[in-house]
């Protein structure tokens, strides 16, 4: 714990700089997600144009009455005390399609023989999922930095008094 006001001020300065950097990364990540999703959605629209407007809709996706299945993508946490303030980092796990184990291919909800446009759209959305995990890591770090700033402000108040 820092025991001088100048130490606290120096730490706060570096944390505020870190916060600004994380805010920039956060916004940049959202813009990248927007760009990738737009490209994917354009390909979904092309698929609808070629295959019919109802070929890609909520009518094809599973509902509560459908058979249960597992997500192909999961998020796992790992400790990373050296490089992060939050002390942990999320990373993406992608499972192989294995129907017997409940890992089904989502493309087959929409077509038995998925057209190229739909396959390409899927690639964009897979990339988007990776960006989402990256965004979640930035957000966790952002919250950890904000928490640390608040705690340092309290320490500074006690030192000034």
């Amino acid at each position: 714990m820092p025991n001088q006001v100048s130490d606290v001020n120096n730490l706060l300065d570096s944390l505020y700089l870190e916060l600004l950097d994380l805010i920039e990364q956060h916004t940049e990540c959202r813009i990248n997600i927007e760009r990738i999703n737009n490209a994917g959605q354009l390909l979904l629209a092309k698929t609808r144009y070629n295959q019919g407007s109802n070929s890609i809709s909520t009518a094809q996706i599973p509902t509560e009455n459908s058979e249960d299945f597992k997500a192909l993508c999961n998020v796992e946490k790992e400790l990373d005390i050296e490089n992060t303030i939050a002390g942990e980092k999320k990373h993406l796990i992608r499972h192989k399609v294995e129907k017997s184990q409940g890992y089904v291919e989502p493309l087959h909800w929409f077509a038995a023989l998925p057209p190229t446009t739909l396959r390409n759209a899927t690639e964009y959305f897979k990339k988007s999922v990776e960006l989402v995990v990256q965004g979640a890591n930035i957000q966790t770090e952002l919250l950890a930095v904000m928490d640390k700033i608040e705690r340092l402000k309290q320490i500074k108040k006690q030192l000034v008094l």
């Binding site: 994917g40 999961n74 796992e76 993406l92 796990i93 992608r94 999922v129």
Partner: peptide, 30 residues
């Protein structure tokens, strides 16, 4: 990004319009 079959982590959930949900479901989060 790791490719595993035995380890199961936590889920990513989605609340959104049709294209957002369809997109992320195609991405494998559903």
């Amino acid at each position: 990004m790791a490719l595993h079959s035995a380890i199961r982590g936590k889920l990513i959930s989605v609340i959104g319009d049709e294209d957002t949900c369809v997109g992320f479901l195609l991405g494998g989060v559903g």
